[in-house]
Amino acid sequence: MKRLLMTTAALTLSGPALAQELQLYNWGNYTSPEMIEKFEEETGIDVTITDYDSNDTALAKIKAGGHGFDMVVPSATYVPIFIEEGLLMEARPDQMENFEHVAERWRDPEFDPGRRYTVPWQWGTVGMVVDTSVYEGDINTAALFLEPPEELQGKINVIPEMMDVMSIAIYYEGGEQCTQDREVLQKVRDRLLAAKPHWLSIDYGTIEKYAEGDLSAGLYWNGAALRVRLQNPDYAFGYPQTGYPVWSDNLAILADAENVEEAKTFMNFVMEPENAAMLSNFARYANGIAGSEEYMDEVMATAPEVNVPEELAGAGVDSKICPPEAQQIYRAIWTEVLK
């Protein structure tokens, strides 16, 4: 018995197995299991997924080194940091076979000019998810969490994404992205601190907690909001008219990846419209691959969560990275909010 255990241990401990494998480090509840299954079947590469819950968690772990991951999916705002810190491999996805499928809008983004490092994974917005059976007023406003109406007080969750929360609050107070205007920021701080007592939680809150009624409203990602609505039809998604962040997450290979060829195979694989559609069908976000629409579920084609209503499209602001000085002030305010 002991020998058996020792053998098992020795086998497991001896590092990477002989079979081809791929270590993907991605946001939790974000990777379509069906797509991974398909990839494993087609290529024989064994994929292991590890979850993170924020860009900073991923950045910290990868920067610390010795993480063992091959690929990561940072948001657009973090891609330049990852590149600047030398954490990403210049894998040249723009020269890959399936790059032709990438939609025009995402071919040459500011955060990765010429797509030398990353390929589109999913993109979406941050807005308000609201139970319309509880609150019947206008939902296209950030007031829902910054000046909560009585019906919603104590039933609100705010995702702990510092930049998204700060940005929406800044737009609400009339400021611009990355502003360092003290006057605006003071208003933002006062607004957030006054609103916080009305929030129930500052958490990554589960889809189920909305659907089952533990929460009634919140600041949330659009795809997650769609998943809430599919479980509870009373829910709707609102786009704050004063401005809301538009984000995108991008798949990249890490500079110290061990399974580079496998990672490149995977990169090429997710740019295939059919496969990108599987991602969207699972996580319920748009994906940036042209032609994937025809493989998507019916519900995606019409969902107001994914297809931004025209009159509100202008309020969307592409997220970009703010200078360290601005971030330092934001972090100080955010710490006060969290305390």
Partner: peptide, 20 residues
Amino acid sequence: GGGKNMMLGNFIELQFGQGR
């Protein structure tokens, strides 16, 4: 605690992630 009722342990962890 739902992220609103942080204790020292959580706050310490935060410094190694989002707090940078």
